[in-house]
Computed example of a mutant assay.
Amino acid sequence: MRPSIRKFAAAGCVAILAACGDPTGSAGDPAALSRALERWSVQDIDDYRMTIRLQGGMLAGHARITVRDGQTVSVQPLAPDEGMPPRFFEHLDTVDELFEVLIDAHNDDAHRIDVQYHPQLGVPMDVYIDPERNAIDEEHGFKIEVFEIL
């Protein structure tokens, strides 16, 4: 992971923790986010492949993404008939960006954030975000089905 992204993400987590009065409320657990980000950061993993499935809202699809030196080098939709071109994964094609999605959800006071992290690596593996309590079809998330260090 590039040092600048680590600093940005760590600063974002600190801001989340400072802004939250109840870290165990319906908006998820920012302390867990901070711990997971720290676990991921200390791993210093820059080369990996993940299979990610988009979930919720009006979009669904999955792709295999390869990252080298912290940069996305390949996004391969696994079911082209789903109509999900690689650009639909642009904001989710590195682990750093997965953390940014969670940080943004916390900063935007999302109504509900459910997340499961990889216990050793800290990678957000299963995420559901409901930005607004009474809105329809704005829920979204992702699931990492396979994560492989290269």
Results as ranks from 00 to 15, higher is better:
43 Q>C: 14
78 L>R: 04
32 A>V: 04
56 G>L: 01
123 V>Y: 03
78 L>Y: 04
112 R>N: 05
89 F>N: 02
36 A>W: 01
63 A>W: 03
32 A>R: 12
97 E>K: 15
83 G>Q: 06
73 V>N: 04
74 S>P: 00
127 V>K: 02
121 L>A: 14
121 L>C: 01
54 L>W: 06
119 P>S: 10
85 P>I: 08
80 P>S: 09
133 R>M: 14
119 P>I: 05
112 R>G: 00
112 R>L: 09
50 M>D: 02
69 D>A: 13
136 I>R: 14
50 M>Q: 07
93 D>R: 08
119 P>N: 06
90 E>C: 07
43 Q>V: 05
106 H>Q: 11
43 Q>I: 00
92 L>P: 00
109 D>S: 14
53 R>N: 07
48 Y>H: 03
107 N>T: 12
123 V>G: 06
99 F>M: 06
113 I>E: 00
101 V>L: 10
71 Q>G: 03
97 E>Q: 12
60 A>L: 07
35 R>L: 13
57 G>R: 04
142 F>Q: 09
78 L>P: 01
85 P>Y: 05
41 S>H: 10
84 M>C: 13
125 M>Q: 11
91 H>R: 15
54 L>V: 13
59 L>N: 12
45 I>A: 03
106 H>L: 05
86 P>G: 06
116 Q>M: 12
125 M>E: 12
61 G>L: 05
110 A>F: 04
68 R>V: 10
108 D>V: 03
51 T>I: 15
109 D>W: 13
85 P>G: 09
123 V>Q: 01
131 P>L: 07
122 G>P: 04
138 E>S: 14
134 N>K: 11
104 D>E: 11
110 A>G: 09
41 S>F: 07
78 L>G: 03
80 P>M: 04
56 G>E: 03
133 R>D: 11
89 F>E: 04
37 L>F: 13
47 D>F: 02
52 I>F: 05
126 D>G: 09
55 Q>P: 00
138 E>H: 14
96 D>C: 08
73 V>Y: 01
126 D>W: 07
123 V>D: 00
90 E>Y: 10
46 D>E: 15
60 A>K: 11
68 R>T: 10
77 P>L: 10
36 A>Y: 00
99 F>C: 07
33 L>K: 02
121 L>R: 12
107 N>Q: 15
75 V>D: 01
76 Q>F: 00
70 G>F: 09
90 E>I: 08
46 D>A: 15
78 L>H: 05
30 P>K: 01
122 G>K: 03
106 H>P: 04
